[in-house]
Structures are given as C-alpha cells and as structure tokens.
Amino acid sequence: MAELINLVLLAMLALTALRIIFLKDLFAVIMLFGIFSFLSALIFINLDAVDVAFTEASVGAGISTVLMLGTLALTGRKEKANSHSSFLPLVVVCITGAALIYGTLDMPDFGDPDNPVHQHVAPRYIEESPKEVGLPNMVTSVLASYRGFDTLGEVVVVFAALIAVLSLLSIRKETEQDASESGLKSHHVLHVVAKLVIPLIILFALYVQFHGDFGPGGGFQAGVIAAAALILYALVFGLPNAFAVIGAKFLYCMASAGVLLYASVGLFSMYKGGNFLDYNKIAAEPLAGQHYGIIIIELGVGITVFAVMLSIFYAFSSQTARSNIK
C-alpha cells in the first residue's frame, strides 16, 4: 500500500514539475512550486523522513513561497515570451540526464536493508546513539552531536543569508502616517482570528523547539514557525506594528547571539579539555553533558533562524511598502 502511495505521489510530483516548465503565469508557477514542496514533504513522510518532511513543509513550502510571492509583488507576474533558442539548454539537460540514468544502473535496490548505506556508519547511529547521546530521536542525535559541526555551518549559512539580504535591501521604519494605511485594518474577522491563532503558533513553536529530542522537530522548524507567527502579525496588523513588537536592531542582535550561543558551547567544551563541540566534557556525566549541549545548541539554532527569517521578511515587505507609496 505504501508503495502504491509512493508511486502515485511521485507521478504527481513529476507532472507538477513538467507543468512548471510551460507555464508563463509566474503566480501560478509559484503556487505550483508550493504544491511541489508539499507533495515532496508527503513523499518524505512516506519514506520515514519525518523531520525532513516537517522542515520541507515549513521552509520549502512556507518561507520560500512567501518570499517568492513577495518578490513577485515587486516584479510583475507575467513572464515575457522567450525569444532565444532553447536548443542548447535542452542538449545540456539531456546529457546530464543521460549521465544520471547511467549512474542509476549500478545503484543498489530501493529499500534493501543490505545496501551499503545501511551497513556502514549508520548502524552505530541506530544502535548506539540512544545509549551514547541518550535521545530517542536519532536524527536529532546525529544532527546536533555526531555532525554538530555541519549544523554550526548551517546556522552560519543562515546568518550569511541575512548579511546578504541586508546588504541588498535595507529595512526602514515607515512614518506614523503610513501605519494607519498598512495592514488589513478593515477585516475584523481576520483580526480576531489572528489574535487567537498567533499565541497558539508561538506555543507550538516552543513545543517543537524543546520536544525535538523526542519527536520530530528542533531548532530550525521552531525558528521558522515562530517567525511565521510574527509574519502573520505583520500581514494582518501592518509592518509598523510588527516593528513595534520586535525591532530590526533587536533581531540583528538575536541573529548574532544565536550563532555565538552555539559556538560558545563548543568553546566551553574546549575549555573543559575536550575537542570543539565535545558535549561529553561539559558536565560531570557524559550523558548529562550531551543533553545540556544539545538543548543549548538547538536554542541557538532556533534563535538565529527565527531572527533571520523574520528580518528577511521585513526586508522584502518594506520594499513592497515603499513601492506602494510610490
């Protein structure tokens, strides 16, 4: 049954992707991309990757789509007819595709437990991590402890994205006069619903943040969800009101603080005589050390992701606001 669902979902995914190629209406293209992301999240669940599905749904289908729509508001929704020839790209793509197909010919069978991937390295994560790291969620163990340096790099990538967006788009507070016009002031239903929903979203974000050790979730997803709550607030009540809640300067400090918090765990373990990010050394008991270490670095991840995602949204929407005034 699961196999059948898988086949159907994959076929739908392929159809969506092919449709994107030929559509000229960019709004539809972006909506289809959102669908594409959600479909792939479903496939990820079907393939047992619940954490990945969670992230893809919140990041790929959520934040990416919002940012794309924000860009579209500034650039116009129609793609112009393409005059130049599409022959060369087709050749390049076909060569790449042929190489990939050639590569699949020796690939191990799908789902076979004897595949090399399941024989080397991974068994230790599956068998030992509940004892060595002490968490039931192996993905969190590997992410935060065994491959903690990758995750630090990833937080730095997010931070680098903030630097890039800020160097391109500046965030400016609007004057009081604009505040009355922005947002969806006249929609009372939206106001009431948003006021009900936003605290729940933030609560859910906190749950995802601190429950990531046991179930799917963790700092990334929590950061994105918390940012989504404030994005909703900014959309309904207007950008100036959102600035009043969390200002841009404060967000910059948060983004830096998250990275530094993560790294400080590593520095502390160096101080205690271990290698960088060796959580075993940060408490008397190795298991307790792992636990503290993972909680703190996940918090660092959550803070940075939240601050960066929200700042990027601020940057995009203050561009939109400015172009509306013009």
């Binding site: 190489a99 990939l100 050639y102 590569g103 699949t104 010919l105 020796d106 690939m107 191990p108 595949n115 090399p116 991937v117 399941h118 024989q119 080397h120 390295v121 991974a122």
Partner: peptide, 29 residues
C-alpha cells in the same frame, strides 16, 4: 552517489571503500 555506494562521508574512509566497488558505474558518475 558516493555515499550510496559506500555508506560513508569521510574522505579517507570513502577512499578505502571505493576500492571495493572499483568499476561501479554509479561511483564513476
């Protein structure tokens, strides 16, 4: 693709395990 055929990401470990699958088309791709 390398990971799929060897199960590892460490470069040195990859090098020692690629020998085993010397003529694999996946590795070459």
């Amino acid at each position: 693709m390398l990971y799929m055929m060897t199960g590892t990401l460490n470069m040195l470990d990859l090098a020692s395990r690629i020998d085993v699958y010397e003529s694999s088309r996946t590795i070459n791709t």
